[in-house]
Design a binder for these strands. Structure first.
Lengths: 240, 240
DNA sequence: TCAAAAGTGTTGCCGGTACACCCATGG
DNA sequence: CCATGGGTGTACCGGCAACACTTTTGA
């Protein structure tokens, strides 16, 4: 047993490390009338003035990464307590030409009717439809691609899609959301049957008439019941 | 449109950020004769000398986080090209009392027969059975818990469990692995039927006699075929 | 009155689950 | 020869997929 050969591992003293800048970037999804959108931000200052980027910030000494992302999100949209999840750490050495800087990307799902439009405008942020997104700065394109992939895989087994809909929503709306996320047409009869069989939608006996003349019944998601089921290993899967 | 109110967001100049130490820690799983194990490491130096911790390192200026983790893994086990995936970034401000330091945890799945025993011993690392694990330093307990959770959820839909078995394995071995990971007894007849129906195991027409007198047929996993299926949205799920 | 979307029901089939017996072999 | 684990077959049932028609109502 000899300590000298492996000092870099056995002795993680701080002199061995080099400090780095740590940022967080938010991939903010919204769903508006059948269209999946992303909130991006036009840089008003150098470097890369005028180019599009995700919304982000450095992580301050007095906060952890999650708190930093929540702070940014609130500053830009006015929203708190929204669905946000860590995506991945981006750490390539040349990802930011200015200095060694890594970013922990987080993706957020927001109800597009609820954000503060004035705040968003003030920060030069705009919604872009997924698929019509221009080039973003640095590795932000990659982040968006990865976030989309995560949204697809995760929404297959967890009801996170609900976070993109208004708190009261109709079954056709929910179906449309799944179709857009998964790029796949679904049979409305089977979709309805499947969704209702899960017994996780609470009928509100109210109709939403914006989508059709007949109107569609509104539901809300039974979060409490879902939480209980989830603990027992239940999976909210719409697809087989 | 006014630039002055939002400089902290619109102008991510490096003066606004504070640099931090960035580390990576590896949660290394192994599967040995029906038992799921973790490779942990006894610290030989201060601080926290003699206590148990995960294997980790600071991220150097000339490498990204993945490379750092691969470096550590090779230094300790001699292994390269093994399954490793980012788990989560741990960034609480007081997680390391010495300095502001965040860690990007990665979990790795290794074939327990293949690592370099001498190297492991030299670094003071040892295998512990999951569930009989003593307290680890800092937030490493939390990392292990999160990694286990990830292993459970991910192995439900992706064949990552295979990474823990020898390259040639038997169906009873595979079943045992699933049982241990998911803490659940499975019916051997149904398990076999299900696994074979996926057509992803290549029979080797050889028997492994270490487990029984009769011997069990050996198989290997068809990675190429799986890759193709995965691209089409196929899911390797053993459970419903 | 009609176009457009919402809502309802049936059937066949595949796959999951439950369950019992024979096989091979080393000791 | 027998204990131990490995391997095979069947029958039932529930859930998924495919598919056509009626309802509502604003324009």
């Amino acid at each position: 047993m000899n300590n000298k050969n492996n000092e870099t591992i056995d002795t993680p003293t701080y002199e061995n490390g080099e400090k780095m800048y740590v940022a967080t970037d938010c991939i903010i999804f919204g769903f508006d009338d059948g269209i999946l959108k992303l909130l991006v931000f036009e840089r008003r200052v150098k470097p890369k003035q005028g180019e599009l980027s995700l919304i982000g910030s450095f992580v301050s000494p007095n906060e952890n990464v999650t708190e930093a992302a929540q702070r940014v999100l609130k500053e830009i949209t006015g929203l708190e307590n929204i669905f946000m999840e860590e995506l991945k750490c981006y750490s390539n050495i040349d990802r930011d030409e200015g200095a060694r800087c890594l970013s922990i990307a987080q993706y957020a799902l927001i109800r597009i009717g609820e954000y503060d439009k004035q705040l968003v405008e003030k920060h030069g942020a705009q919604w872009y439809e997924i698929g019509k997104l221009p080039k973003l700065v640095y590795d932000h394109d990659q982040m968006v691609e990865d976030a989309l992939e995560r949204l697809r895989t995760k929404s297959r087994f967890y009801p996170i899609g609900i976070e993109l809909l208004p708190k009261q929503f109709t079954i056709p709306q929910l179906q449309k959301l799944y179709e857009v996320i998964h790029q796949k047409q679904l049979d409305p009869r089977n979709f309805r049957k499947k969704v209702l069989s899960l017994k996780l939608l609470i009928p509100l006996n109210k109709k939403d008439k914006t989508g059709s003349k007949k109107g569609a019944y509104l539901y809300k998601f039974d979060y409490k019941k879902y939480k209980k089921l989830e603990e027992k290993g239940f999976n909210f899967s719409i697809f087989k």
